[in-house]
């Protein structure tokens, strides 16, 4: 494809096997066996069952891997509910990347099925997040993980357009004021 493969592949840390610490150390051990050419492709994401933001940050900082913050996963699994105290550390994991910091955005399907992805994105939940990060970085790429795929993106943009704290750029981008 003629594209630089660096930071193109998002992965979870993996299995917890009921021992978070040992599982993190095993990740580090196995990482040493992964060829450099593949190492550089990888970004890591905090998940909603085993490795929270702090666990994932530990690996990302130690091994120089960019962290893809999943806000929905964080709401389902956290050590400290206040993710924003670690935000600067997340930003720092991207300092050697040529690509803008990226995050995952999805909304809980319901109280009972909290971990499931909803069809669309909850605007106010999304802006709770954006308000905290505004100004910390020039650009943030938000990957929408919603059942309605591109339609969820279009609907979210329709709702964003109604706000007075943004400046529209085009069909999928806007600037926070």
């Amino acid at each position: 494809m003629g594209i630089d493969p660096t930071h193109r592949c998002v992965m979870h840390v993996g299995g917890n096997y009921n021992e978070t610490e040992q599982s993190l150390e095993r990740f580090i051990e196995n990482w040493m066996d992964v060829p450099k050419s593949i190492q550089k492709m990888i970004m890591l994401e905090n998940d909603d069952t085993s490795f929270n933001l702090e666990d994932t940050l530990y690996l990302c900082e130690k091994l120089g891997i960019p962290l893809v913050f999943d806000y929905h996963h964080h709401l389902a699994l956290y050590q400290n509910p206040r993710w924003e105290v670690n935000w600067e550390r997340v930003v720092d994991t991207w300092k050697y990347s040529l690509l803008p910091l990226k995050i995952h955005i999805s909304s809980p399907k319901s109280e009972e099925k909290f971990r499931h992805h909803a069809d669309y994105i909850d605007l106010s939940l999304f802006f709770d997040f954006l308000k905290e990060v505004n100004g910390s970085i020039p650009q943030i790429d938000c990957m929408i993980e919603a059942k309605m795929k591109d339609q969820a993106l279009f609907q979210l943009m329709e709702e964003v357009k109604q706000r007075n704290d943004v400046e529209l750029i085009d069909g999928s981008s806007f600037k926070l004021l």
């Binding site: 650009q139 938000c142 993980e145 981008s173 600037k175």
Partner: peptide, 9 residues
């Protein structure tokens, strides 16, 4: 300030 760019899967 920060530019937000949306993508999908």
């Amino acid at each position: 300030m920060t530019i937000v760019r949306l993508g999908y899967v």
